[in-house]
Write a protein that binds this DNA or RNA. Structure first.
Length: 612
RNA sequence: GCCGGAGUAGCUCAGCUGGUAGAGCAGCCGCCUUGUAAGCGGCAGGUCGCCGGUUCGAAUCCGGCCUCCGGCUCCA
């Protein structure tokens, strides 16, 4: 048979030849280095047979600085199996679940025997055991068995999670055979592929221990997840660990303290106190948003933070969102803090008779909302309980939806461009907990999809991740260590207008129901500033910088002049400080740089010529 | 909310298996009057997260709670 190689040449092989045979036919060096084979873009074991006419590419460790992402994922997957091998040896009776490679490494989820807890202190011991298996270069051997045989095996071993996985595979996908991979003493249910042996795992490290629900379901067993990472070489691993370390130096929680941006206090978990320098960022962004809104025909409004609970019953928040709301009783009346601004805006809309000629109506509000997020999810400025959204609601006709959604996205991209942000888009569809008919949802999801497709935008789909009142398009950004956060959002809503009985008079002189678009582009000022801080590592562009210049007097005799200079700059609108401390010039300049002042000036007797 | 870890001075952290708390930086005072990544000296600063228990004695051991960190679930 013949297969095609990446350079277009074809290779003659015996019938039934495997990827390993192909590598050997090309050259002994390649045969030694080969990890797997990629056939028509799909990675397979080297031992898998090839078929006539397939396009074949040998997957190898990086060579000449050309890393193959598939190769890295492969050895990380191998490493996950080696981890499970070591854990089963060290903690007999442990139940294994799943252990995939992920971006940046791998993990494996375990249920340890009763009474056994594993913490990060135990990781070195597990690593040591893993190392023994890597050194032993144990081959990964694949075996295809019937689902029944596999079930019998895992039932016998008491591996309940594997049993459940096989049962589900049989039930949901009708599989008849499953593959098992064995390395040394360990056999796992696994789709593969794997490298030829554990020796290619190379340089690895276990990083952390965390809880993780079985199958991501909070109602099920909490497993212990061990995270690790692996590379081909020690150098790459060390470079990776250094990069993580450097990313931690950009952490907005640390920079927020060092630069005097905000304060988090135990008195109000999840509710930042804004310090003077942080407030500058907040205000500059507010100004930006206000200007952009004005350009696009938004009218600014402001609605109450605390309202009678009747509003939340009417809007549906009581039914679908009350667990996340704050309530209190005042004068025998139950009142709630707003978690969203939309019901308030409906009241402004409803306060007058509206004509089709008025639409679209666009109300914007820098709205302070409170949401009772679970304690375990709070995270600096990126996940808080009290925050200010750059919110807006557009009331429009059915026909105007697409243009308005596109307008929102364009406005969002325009703002993100200013910061060099390239957000990832996600369409979130109907959740289980929702209001409205399936027809409404079909319609609303279709409209959002169409708006993005019209602009040729790439997007992911988050099934079931929409809000209770409608689907949405979210703009996501990553923080310094790669975690993804939702910033902007554009949401379509047929529910709220219905529930509040909103109307406009059409050209036919009949009442019609408007559609509502909820949209926040920064998302919240808090989260946006968090991301912004990490993005710039605290070195904000001049227009945002809390302190734009610092004047450094050399000696006391320059103080008066330094103050004059500062005054002149302030009069011109700059944010300026004078460093009046009785410190050395070296020190004052160093501090100015460390605190990321964008410019510093030195007040002196004569022009300074820098020594060679 | 769940799992694991951690809370010692404003910050970063020492403080072995119980005997009553320390450093650096920051702060304050003084000296120095300065030329591009930390001048010098001194002083002050802590109900060791909170509550309870064990003990002659608890920062240290035990329990509960709060907060933070890493994840999971969930969300801007």
């Amino acid at each position: 048979m013949r297969v095609t190689l990446p350079d277009g040449t074809s290779l003659e092989l015996q019938d039934g030849a495997t990827g390993a045979d192909a590598a050997a036919a090309i050259g002994p060096g390649l045969a030694r280095a080969a990890l797997a084979v990629r056939v028509d873009g799909q990675v397979r074991d080297l031992s898998a047979p090839l078929a006539e006419g397939e396009r074949v590419e040998i997957v190898t460790p990086p060579r000449d600085g050309q890393p193959d992402p598939d190769a890295l994922w492969l050895i990380r997957h191998d490493a996950a199996h080696v981890l499970a091998t070591a854990v089963l040896e060290l903690y007999p009776g442990t139940k294994i679940s799943i252990g995939p490679p992920i971006e940046g490494g791998f993990y494996y989820d375990f249920e340890f025997p009763a009474g056994v807890t594993v913490s990060e202190d135990d990781l070195p011991r597990i690593e040591e055991r893993m190392r023994e298996h890597v050194r032993a270069a144990e081959p990964f051997v694949r075996e295809d068995v019937t689902a029944g045989e596999a079930l019998e095996r895992f039932v016998r071993e008491g591996q309940d999670y594997k049993v459940e996985l096989i049962e589900d595979l049989v039930r949901d996908q009708g599989v008849e055979t499953v593959s098992l991979y064995t390395n040394g003493p360990f056999t796992d249910l696994c789709r593969g592929p794997h490298g030829p042996s554990t020796k290619d795992v190379g340089a690895f490290r276990l990083q952390s221990v965390a809880g993780a629900y079985w199958r991501g379901d909070a109602s099920r067993q909490m497993l212990t997840r061990i995270y690790g990472t692996a590379f081909f070489s020690q150098e790459e691993l060390e470079a990776h660990m250094r990069a993580l370390e450097e990313a931690r130096a950009r952490d907005h929680r640390r920079l927020g303290r060092e630069l005097g941006l905000f304060l988090l206090s135990d008195y109000a978990p999840g509710a930042p106190f804004w310090l003077p320098h942080g407030m500058v960022l907040f205000n500059e962004l507010t100004r930006l948003v206000r200007e952009e809104n004005a350009k696009r025909g938004y009218q600014e409004v402001r609605t109450p933070v605390l309202t009678g609970v009747e509003l939340w019953r009417q809007s549906g928040h009581w039914d679908k969102y009350k667990d996340h709301m704050y309530f209190t009783e005042v004068d025998d009346r139950l009142v709630g803090l707003k978690p969203m601004n939309c019901p308030g805006h409906t009241q402004i809309y409803a306060a007058e008779r509206r004509s089709y000629r008025d639409l679209p109506i666009r109300y914007s509000e820098a709205g302070l909302v409170h949401r009772h997020e679970p304690s375990g999810v709070l995270h600096g400025l990126l996940r808080v309980r009290a925050f200010t959204q750059d919110d807006a609601h557009i009331f429009c006709t059915e026909e105007q939806i697409e243009d308005e959604v596109v307008g929102c996205l364009e406005m969002g991209f325009g703002i993100y461009d200013l910061f060099g942000f390239e957000p990832a888009l996600e369409l979130s569809t109907r959740p289980d907990n929702r209001l409205g008919s399936d027809e409404m949802w079909d319609h609303a999801e279709g409209a959002l999809r169409q708006a993005m497709e019209r602009r040729g935008l790439q997007f992911d789909v988050g099934e079931g991740e929409g809000t209770f009142y409608g689907p949405k398009i979210d703009l996501h950004m990553r923080d310094s260590i790669g975690r993804s956060w939702q910033l902007g959002t554009v949401q379509l809503d047929y529910q709220m207008p219905e529930r509040f009985g909103l109307e406009y008079t059409g050209p036919d002189d009949e009442p019609h129901r408007p559609v509502m678009i909820h949209r926040a582009l920064l998302g919240s000022f808090e989260r946006f500033i968090g991301i912004l801080t990490e993005h710039y590592a605290g070195e904000f562009p001049v227009w945002l910088a809390p302190v734009q210049a610092v004047v450094v007097p050399i000696a006391d005799r320059h103080l008066e002049y330094a103050r004059e200079v500062a005054e002149t700059l302030r009069a011109a609108g700059a944010r300026v400080e004078v460093d009046e401390r009785a410190e050395s010039t070296r020190r004052k300049i160093r501090d100015a740089e460390l605190r990321n002042r964008r410019a510093s000036g030195v007040a002196q007797d004569r022009r300074y010529t820098r020594p060679r």
